[in-house]
Computed example of a mutant assay.
Amino acid sequence: MEAQAVLGSFVAGQEDYEVLEEIGQGTFSEVHRGRHRSTHQEVALKEMFLTEQKALPLHVERELQLLRAVSHPNILPLQGVYSKGFGITLVFPLCRTDLYRAMDAGPLPAPIAKAALKQLFEAVGALHDAGFAHRDLAPSNALLTDDGRVLLCDFGQARRLGDGQPQADGVAPDREGALTPVVGTRWYRAPELLFAARSYNHAVDCWSLGMIAAHALRGAPLCPGASDIDQICRVQAALGSIEEASGAPVADWADWGKLVFPPSPGQPWEALLPGTDPAARELCAGLLCYDPAQRWSVARALSSDYFDGAAAPADVAAHLAHLPL
């Protein structure tokens, strides 16, 4: 799709911003710290290259379409887009850290973990209500603002999941193609994706949220696999063997049965999440269910007793202020 067709009201002028320094680089983009010339507000400038046909790459198109369709206080807002040479630049608020780095600096106090997780879950709930699955939920994609808000970002793998019909503001099905299991960050990837399922739904995000919650609650990743096979081994060592008896629709998983894994009874949640309250363990158990049909939805998770009395963003900000980030 040509760039101008989806930019809409996001269009801004390149002359409005000055580039200060590079703060990140990826395969398809560079991120710079920038500043608005009139307001002097610092921003993040994400430079993306267009295809030879001057069309948006699919991951950019997905991100723009989602940001046009979904608005929520915990979703990183797009402040503008402008053309630059053979690419476009997306303008976002500047966030100086993320949930992964905050957790890496030391275990989060239980009230801070709860407050941050609630905001993240609410953002994902807004995506699901609009029909989107993020498909790459990870702590590094949960940015943290100076005032303690969580802002979900990086929607390049996000996709509407449903009946496959064209959406008024979505990417056309022929542009999207078939669902791929090659999405997500390994430590937080659902088992149906690890076993190459070609049909899945929003429950893949719910598994990721369960792994993120476990990471936040225990102060370390629950299953930090070094490869996809190692990830499957670690998941089963923690949660027990994936078997047909578990209710998981393994017959629909393309790679099921190609390898034989040693049986594992798993570990009790008291051992996996020591020192946590029962509601926290119930939350993770509900989200980390092998059967996607039985896995807790975001709405079910947010109704959990675990989130009762969650702290305000200001408390998260106070904690962040003392971290060496």
Rank of each mutant, 00 (worst) to 15 (best):
V298N: 01
W253D: 02
L287E: 02
A293S: 13
D277R: 15
S264L: 04
P278D: 01
V298A: 06
V260D: 10
L259A: 12
V250K: 00
A254E: 13
P263R: 12
A271M: 08
R300V: 02
G275C: 08
C289P: 04
P249V: 02
D252M: 07
A279C: 13
A293P: 02
P265T: 09
S264I: 06
L288K: 04
L302M: 12
L259V: 13
W253Y: 05
A293L: 11
P262N: 03
A251I: 00
R281F: 12
L288F: 05
Y290P: 11
S304M: 05
G266Q: 08
Y290T: 09
L288W: 06
P262T: 11
L259Q: 03
W253P: 03
P263K: 06
A271G: 02
A271T: 13
G257P: 13
P262H: 09
S304V: 04
F261Y: 15
K258T: 07
G266R: 03
Y290D: 12
Q294V: 02
V250C: 01
A301T: 14
D252F: 06
T276H: 02
L288N: 09
Q267K: 15
R281S: 09
L283E: 00
E270W: 02
P292M: 10
P263T: 11
E270H: 04
L288E: 07
P278S: 04
D277S: 14
W269Q: 11
D255L: 15
F261E: 00
W256N: 01
G266W: 07
V298I: 12
G247Q: 02
D252L: 13
P262G: 12
A254H: 04
D252Q: 12
S264V: 05
S264K: 09
S264C: 15
A299M: 01
W253Q: 02
G257D: 06
E270N: 11
Q267L: 14
S304A: 13
Q294A: 15
D291C: 11
A248Q: 01
L287Q: 03
Q267D: 03
C284Y: 07
P274G: 08
A280F: 04
A301K: 07
L302E: 14
L302Y: 04
W269F: 14
R281D: 10
L288Q: 06
D252H: 12
A293C: 10
A285W: 07
C284D: 01
D252R: 10
G257S: 11
P265C: 11
S246M: 01
W256A: 04
L302Q: 06
S246N: 03
W269P: 07
A279Y: 00
D277N: 13
L273N: 07
L273M: 05
A248M: 00
A254W: 00
P249Y: 03
E282L: 15
W296P: 00
P292C: 10
P278H: 09
G247N: 03
Y290I: 12
T276P: 01
A279V: 11
A301Y: 08
V298E: 00
A251Q: 10
A299P: 04
D277G: 14
P268V: 11
G247F: 01
C284S: 08
P265Y: 12
A293H: 11
P278K: 08
R281K: 14
V260Q: 13
T276F: 02
D255N: 14
G275Y: 08
S246Q: 00
Q267A: 12
Y290K: 08
A251R: 14
E270P: 06
A254C: 03
A285V: 07
C289V: 13
L288H: 07
